[in-house]
Design a protein around this nucleic acid. Structure first.
Lengths: 219, 219
DNA sequence: CGACCAATTGAATTGATTCAAGGTCCGTGG
DNA sequence: CCACGGACCTTGAATCAATTCAATTGGTCG
């Protein structure tokens, strides 16, 4: 992991997210400015057991936040994309670990006063919580096809891309997010393709052909 | 639902939780005092779509917080017991609904200043979030026996009861919490009984006979 | 071009569900 | 006190969705 200089001329990464979200902007206003760290794919951002405290803002790229069972089974709690904030943990230690999925830029947010990051931190934490609660319903009560449909629609809603949805993560990441095996992910994508719900122009791109059909599956 | 008077002499409910948790006490200090509402089993505390804002403190009893799919499948996000705070939601509307499981007393917590409930609200929200993230791992990556073992141990840790664990909720609630059917819950309990891990002196009580064996299952 | 990793596909297996039948607990009323 | 009814729970048998295991294909990069 390298620390990027804040000086623009030395930066060779793509433009940072615009942070159009007012809550994120307010959080930035309460934070000390920090450099953007650049991560190659599959690098650790923080580990299980690390001291928690600062928050992390995704400038570009994708992050996965995960937890493991004692025998190594992995569950991905959330993916985070450009403009999203993560790193919330109670107590002093990270119970989850976070890694870059692809080439990712992360800005550290440290509170610049004793007052902490204020109300905006709570707001963003509650949003994250709502997202996770949605995911409980998905993991506990949906079948493979429904899970996949929800996942594709969610990806589309969070990317501003219109036509093609970018799959920055590989099949096994999707599997560990949806509580499936990577073989099942592959099979469901094939079934969607055969049902003319989607097209897969590349391994890492989805084009939705039938939004109605897909939304119907996702309820 | 009846509103209990704050006057002790008119109260016929069991003694309220002592709120030994300093964070909950600090939250109470920032809240306007409110009466305790008494709920019979299976009454609505708030509904999907209700305006959110106030927090709720369980004085006694058990609460379930749930979400439904469009076709009526239910996932219970969390159970809450005496001394626990719930009701966190982003935005203005409840995405979940909350109900009493058994006879339950709830104290409403409304902020008494414009500053809101302060840091303690964030602390408790983060705790809730950590609990939910644990539950993602359970729902996504554990089998029925492991889920049940984790559930029993968690119940024990959250109740101060030593010998007998009280199952205030019925089998279908446990099923909707663990992402199983109630038949499977019943079968797993039977298997635990046959394996001499537990005893079921009553329908709603568990006695753990082999903590090591149970913990081993739960990892 | 070959090597390697990821993804696909097939066949067999299995864990959990579904459907169906009993059994148990508990309150109510004769 | 006991019989009755209904809700909850247990148990069994058949089914099915998803996994496991095993090839094979495809894509990417030196």
């Amino acid at each position: 992991m390298q620390i990027q200089s804040l000086h623009p001329s030395s930066s060779h990464v793509s433009a940072p997210a615009t942070h159009s979200d007012p809550v994120v902007r307010s959080l930035l206003a309460n934070a000390r400015p920090c450099a953007v760290s650049f991560y190659k794919p599959n690098e650790a951002i923080y580990a299980h057991g690390d001291t928690s405290g600062p928050l992390y803002l995704v400038e570009f790229g994708t992050v996965r936040v995960c937890r493991l069972t004692a025998d190594g089974r992995r569950q991905i709690s959330t993916f985070h994309f450009a403009g999203e904030v993560f790193g919330f943990e109670p107590g002093g230690e990270h119970l989850n670990y976070a890694e870059s999925v692809d080439s990712t830029g992360i800005r550290l947010l440290r509170p610049n006063s004793d007052a902490g990051l204020g109300e905006s931190a709570l707001t963003i934490a509650l949003r994250t919580m709502a997202r996770i609660q949605d995911h409980l319903l998905l993991l506990g009560r949906m079948n493979a096809a429904e899970k996949m449909a929800v996942f594709i629609i969610d990806l589309h809603d969070r990317q501003d891309a219109d036509r093609f949805i970018d799959l920055s993560m590989q099949r096994s990441d999707i599997a560990d997010y949806l509580g499936l095996t990577f073989e099942t992910v592959s099979r469901v994508l094939k079934a969607f393709k055969d049902a003319k719900l989607i097209r897969l122009p590349m391994l890492s791109q989805i084009e939705v052909l039938d939004w109605t059909g897909l939304r119907c599956l996702a309820e």
